[in-house]
C-alpha cells in the first residue's frame, strides 16, 4: 500500500506547490455558474429551476479544464516511462493519480458550491441534494477524464482533444447527476449515479493504463 499512498501524497504535494491551478479551476467553476443568470435574464423562478443543471455544467467544464494536468506533464518529462518500471502496476498508479486528481480538482469545486448555490438562489434542500450528487458523480467524471487524458497523452496540445472525446461518455453522469437533484425518482437516479461512479472508477484505470502503454509505441 505504501507506493500507492506515496503517489497520492506526491500528486497532492505537486498540486499544492503549483498553487494557481486549483484556485483557477474553482474560480472558473464559480464564474461559469455566475454568468448564466446574465444570459438567462432576471427570472428568479426559472433560475431556481435550472440551477442544478447550471451547477453540473459548471463542474463538468471545470473538470474538463483540469484534465490536462493529469498525465501531460509526466509524459513530457519522462516520468511516465519510469513509472512503468516501478513495482506497482501501471493501472494501480493510474488509480492513485485519479484519486489525487479528484482530491485537487473535484473536491475544491464541491467546497465552493455553496457560493454558487447562493448566487443561483437555491433553497437549502436543493443545495444539499446538489452537494450529494456532486460527491457521487464527480468520481465518474474524473475517471472518464483519465481515459481521455491517457488516450491523448502523446498528442501535442492533446488537452483540447480529451474533453471532446469524453464529453459523450459523461452524458449519463450529467443525466443522473441532475436527476438526483430534480427528478421525481431522485433516489433511483442517485443509486444509478453511484453505480456509474463505482463502475467508472473500477474500470478506467485499466483502460487508461492500456492507452498509456500503447502511446509510446
Amino acid at each position: 500500500m505504501k507506493p500507492f499512498s506515496t503517489i497520492i501524497a506526491h500528486e497532492l504535494r505537486l498540486a499544492l506547490r503549483g498553487g494557481g491551478d486549483m484556485l483557477t479551476l474553482v474560480l472558473f467553476f464559480v464564474i461559469v455558474g455566475a454568468i448564466v443568470p446574465f444570459a438567462v435574464g432576471p427570472d428568479k423562478a426559472l433560475l431556481a429551476r435550472i440551477a442544478p443543471g447550471i451547477v453540473w455544467i459548471s463542474a463538468f467544464l471545470a473538470m474538463l479544464l483540469g484534465l490536462d494536468r493529469l498525465f501531460h506533464a509526466d509524459h513530457e518529462d519522462g516520468t511516465l516511462i519510469l513509472l512503468r518500471q516501478s513495482e506497482l502496476p501501471l493501472s494501480a498508479i493510474v488509480a492513485a493519480k485519479v484519486m489525487a486528481h479528484w482530491l485537487v480538482t473535484a473536491l475544491p469545486l464541491i467546497l465552493a458550491s455553496p457560493v454558487l448555490a447562493m448566487l443561483l438562489a437555491m433553497d437549502l434542500e436543493t443545495f444539499l441534494r446538489t452537494l450529494m450528487s456532486l460527491l457521487l458523480g464527480t468520481p465518474a467524471l474524473a475517471a472518464f477524464g483519465a481515459i481521455g487524458a491517457a488516450v491523448t497523452v502523446a498528442i501535442r496540445r492533446g488537452g483540447l482533444i480529451a474533453p471532446i472525446l469524453i464529453a459523450p461518455l459523461s452524458i449519463p453522469v450529467l443525466i443522473f447527476g441532475v436527476g438526483t437533484i430534480t427528478a421525481t425518482q431522485s433516489n433511483a437516479a442517485m443509486l444509478f449515479l453511484a453505480a456509474l461512479s463505482l463502475m467508472a472508477v473500477a474500470l478506467a484505470p485499466f483502460a487508461a493504463a492500456l492507452a498509456i502503454s500503447s502511446a509510446e509505441d
Binding site: 505504501k2 507506493p3 506515496t6 503517489i7 506526491h10 504535494r13 505537486l14 506547490r17 503549483g18 513530457e76 518529462d77 519522462g78 516520468t79 516511462i81 519510469l82 513509472l83 518500471q85 516501478s86 513495482e87 506497482l88
Partner: peptide
C-alpha cells in the same frame, strides 16, 4: 521489474526538492 531505464528526459519535478524527487522513486521502485 528487473531494470532501470535512464533516458534522455530526467523525470525530475521542478517544484519538489532534490531529496523529495529521489525519495519518490525509492518508494516506488
Amino acid at each position: 521489474p528487473h531494470l532501470h531505464y535512464c533516458g534522455h528526459r530526467n523525470a525530475i519535478k521542478a517544484r519538489l526538492s532534490v531529496l523529495e524527487n529521489l525519495q519518490l522513486w525509492a518508494t516506488l521502485n
